[in-house]
Design a protein around this nucleic acid. Structure first.
Length: 197
DNA sequence: TATAAGATTTACT
DNA sequence: GTAAATCTTATAT
């Protein structure tokens, strides 16, 4: 079933990041379901996190979405060419989000392959930019309500035991100093679909 | 105004 | 392993 507002608005973003593992990210298109199981996430926590776009309370046209209430999509462009899909968490005015970094293709794989002609299924969505290309997520999804009909996360009963969740430092945030070392990246232990080997 | 660097991926050496 | 592609934002002229 589709995750409701209450899942996202909780205060503990790290908990949301952990619990998103194993859920399905669904983007219906062409009358079909296109979905992947979340294999890797990263938490970006509020104004104190030097790695976060909202560090120090920064507020720009791009980061405005991070300040929305939990349960909306934060989609932006990095390096001028790759989209990143995030889930906003916490209450309105609290800029926190969880970056979805990797998916295991689950439904509508043919639609994903149409946009990403790769041989190995493991390369379809094993990275934050890759999964956006595979699912057709672009900036038009920024601010989209995750309890609405265009994109959402759902629980299909797939259980993830605590021992199956691994954690470690986040990727690509070396500029964040000591905050770059915090174990705020989570992934399914042993999954072949995470972004790094 | 100009420049540098980034929550990355891919192709080529 | 290194480099290129190229939009947004921050900081320096």
């Amino acid at each position: 079933m589709k995750l409701g507002r209450d899942f996202y608005t909780r205060a503990d973003t790290l908990l949301v990041a952990r619990e998103l593992l194993g859920k399905l990210l669904v983007v219906p298109q062409g009358g079909a379901r296109v979905a992947g199981r979340v294999a890797e996430t990263e938490a970006y926590v509020g104004t104190e996190d030097r790695a976060s776009h909202a560090f120090g309370g920064r507020r720009t046209a791009r980061t405005e979405t991070m300040y929305a209430r939990g349960g909306v999509a934060y989609v932006y462009l990095v390096y001028g060419m790759h989209h990143q899909f995030n889930v906003v968490t916490g209450p309105e005015g609290s800029p926190q989000a969880v970056l979805v970094r990797a998916l295991e293709p689950a439904e509508g794989v043919v639609y994903m392959r149409r946009r990403r002609p790769v041989r190995d299924e493991r390369a379809l969505a094993s990275g934050p930019g890759k999964l956006c290309q595979a699912l057709g997520i672009d900036r038009s999804f920024n601010g989209e309500d995750l309890t609405g009909p265009r994109v959402w996360l759902e629980d299909d009963g797939f259980a993830v035991a605590p021992s199956e969740v691994a954690s470690g430092p986040r990727v690509g945030v070396a500029y964040a100093g000591e905050h770059a070392l915090l174990p705020w990246r989570f992934w399914l232990r042993g999954s072949a679909f995470v972004s790094r080997k």
